[in-house]
């Protein structure tokens, strides 16, 4: 079963492309405020995670997601 850590590691690998400012990614990095993803880029990011882990991520969980840690935790709960 996929764990919190697996989601987080995959997110780091995907976000490296967007991370032009050389920000050190961590659980507390915010997708929009820190990395500066647009709403469209957030959806593309979501699709990559869905494809990688063969899951569907309900839009309902996104309003509560700010940091990478928030997101990984939500995904861990989904799968629980």
């Amino acid at each position: 079963m996929t764990e919190y850590r697996d989601y987080l590691d995959f997110m780091y690998s995907v976000l490296d492309v967007h991370n032009k400012g050389g920000l050190v990614l961590s659980e507390t990095t915010e997708l929009v405020a820190d990395i500066g993803l647009s709403s469209l880029e957030v959806m593309e990011f979501v699709e990559k995670i869905e494809d990688r882990f063969d899951i569907s991520i309900p839009l309902n969980i996104l309003p509560d997601v700010y940091t990478l840690g928030d997101f990984a935790r939500k995904l861990d709960e989904l799968d629980a």
Partner: peptide, 25 residues
């Protein structure tokens, strides 16, 4: 969708294969 209270899942635009994948899940 937001008002419904249902779980909202998107499938890729005009992509029946992606739709199938999500129904399978």
């Amino acid at each position: 969708a937001q008002l419904s209270g249902a779980e909202i899942i998107r499938f890729k635009h005009n992509d029946p294969e992606d739709l199938a994948k999500r129904l399978r899940r």
